[in-house]
Design a protein around this nucleic acid. Structure first.
Lengths: 333, 333
DNA sequence: CTGAAAGCGCTAACAG
DNA sequence: CTGTTAGCGCTTTCAG
């Protein structure tokens, strides 16, 4: 492997000049720059990441903590990860993937100076990892909003507003007998922040409107969705609208509706809370409140890098949810 | 941050002793070890990853090249990634995630000495990245088998055997009118290795048995599965068995079967080629040839690390497929 | 606009 | 069993 020394020799300059050509941190004459660049090319020179990290205390690596739980909406995670990985490259950063939710991995990569910043998914309302993040040397960004961010940056869809919006949109269409097929009991059992927030907004809006509503948690599977739908219909047989906040249950819910002879949207309106790609791929394209996972991943990187580069301030960014009308909802006459 | 020097001072030893306590590369008296370890604890010392990489030319990082394509079976990728990440930790390795399939990322992390080895998914029969991997300084493992591995290690389910097995198993149950719902045209268009191999095995076995078979490619979506099933039944109305090698199409295929009043397995046997978790989660638990994605990910790490640590030889490991009987197949009488 | 040189924190001979 | 020390390859003052 060629070193910066080899390049310097080949170009007839000092190593610091090569370094400055690479970093652009001081002016270089056109002639020198050209010689250095051609030496770099012909030697196929690449700076040694470890040496660079040691000398500059910058690693150009971002950690992404993404517990790959089977019970969690896989496609949403994928979109996040894609958004993060893609945006990271625009800052010349790579992504180190941590798939456990224990603090020791975070501690290892942080204290070991392996990373410039850390992004964390799957946030719980009272997340046990937050105290550690707070005292880390590197900035971190939460993808999700805990009850007490403790000065950390957060970014997410405003799930509380999404919950309200789901209800108010259906009310606006004249529906008053509405049920929610929610996330799995496990997700709520962990006090996953987005799930609790959505539920809170949903409940509050229903309450303020004086509408009774049924909430059925559902396993993240086809059978889970079927059961949840059955349970909801058992409680409110003359249901006219359904909100589904559980990607994996969607096929089961829709399949069971069809079996029971309930047409969407003629007999029942369905509003999903999921990525647009998923809503569009259903047999009946679903009206939905989209989860802009790719965008959120991208923003998380931007926020992290602003703190790395410009020493920017921490902030919480909540994206405003919007209903996208597709084919699964109608107004009641 | 405490350095090795601080630890050495606190313990009253030299830095090399601290280093050797950590690496275990030479004998240390119990007393010294104890003093060093307690100094490490009380200072919260962690070796600087960059410094270590620079001095030892080992990074303790594995690159995982995993193009996160929307059209590819997301759940299989997740299982791979989980297997890789989990097993990597047993070797004290972390995982750097590369989500593009261009050579430049690979080149960057390899030439920049960021990694000890590289694992690559989504292999094509004539993969353009292989020539680069061959001349890399670090060993690499292909998760999938190209036509010409060029001396690289490969690991995968034996998809050709899986294709044969799917046919022979159904023949053994007395079925002779069999159709295959295959992967998306895009996957085949890219000449993805596993898809081509499965098809080859499937075709050969059918041919040898003198059985005509219908192959319908399917988009990776619910509607895609429905269409594929309709197409297959249009061509062979008295079909008795179906092989499905497309996770995402599964719900569509099963849903459409039900709509058409075809019961599984009474009217039609279904054999899936997918991860066990998915086969079990369907409305009717599917008889399947399982794709042991977690295991393959784990093995890939083992193979990579054996080359990093012991300088082991390259090899190709093909896991033998097995049919797991669940509720979706019956013998024809 | 460019060079010299002092580290960054660790590993691994070499020496005892 | 332990210590000394020469790098590993780069960045960044300090000097000119």
């Amino acid at each position: 492997m060629a070193t910066i020394h080899d390049v310097a020799d080949a170009a007839g300059v000092s190593t610091s000049t090569v370094s400055y050509v690479l970093s652009g941190k001081r002016p270089i004459s056109a002639a020198t720059r050209a010689r250095v660049e051609s030496a770099i090319m012909s030697l196929g020179y690449r700076p040694h990441a470890g040496a660079r990290a040691l000398a500059s205390s910058r690693t150009n690596v971002l950690a992404l903590v993404a517990p790959l739980r089977a019970d969690v909406n896989v496609s949403v995670i994928m979109e996040f990860v894609t958004g993060v990985a893609t945006q990271a490259r625009t800052y010349d950063q790579d992504v180190l993937l941590l798939t456990t939710d224990d603090v020791s991995s975070i501690e290892r990569v942080s204290s070991g100076s392996m990373i410039d910043a850390l992004l964390m998914m799957d946030i719980e309302t009272d997340d046990h990892r937050i105290p550690f993040l707070v005292q880390m040397r590197q900035p971190s960004v939460l993808i999700g909003v805990p009850d007490a961010p403790r000065g950390l940056s957060c970014v997410d869809l405003d799930f509380e507003a999404a919950g309200r919006l789901a209800v108010s949109h259906l009310l606006g269409l004249g529906h008053t007998r509405i049920a929610l097929v929610g996330p799995t009991p496990l997700v709520l059992g962990r006090h996953t922040a987005y799930a609790e927030r959505m539920l809170r907004g949903y409940r509050r809006e229903a309450e303020q409107a004086g509408v009774e509503t049924v909430i059925e948690l559902s396993e993240a599977s086809q059978p889970g969705g079927r059961d949840a739908l059955d349970a909801a219909l058992a409680r409110v047989p003359d249901l006219t609208a359904l909100v589904v906040h559980n990607e994996a249950a969607l096929p089961g819910v829709l399949g069971r509706l069809q079996e029971r002879g309930l047409r969407v949207p003629e007999d029942l309106s369905v509003l999903a809370l999921c990525p647009a790609t998923l809503a569009e791929a259903q047999p009946v394209p679903l009206t939905s409140i989209d989860i802009p996972a790719t965008t959120i991943g991208r923003l998380a990187v931007d926020m992290a890098m602003s703190r790395v580069l410009d020493d920017g301030l921490a902030e919480t960014r909540l994206l405003t949810p919007q209903v996208v009308e597709r084919a699964s909802t109608v107004a009641l006459d």
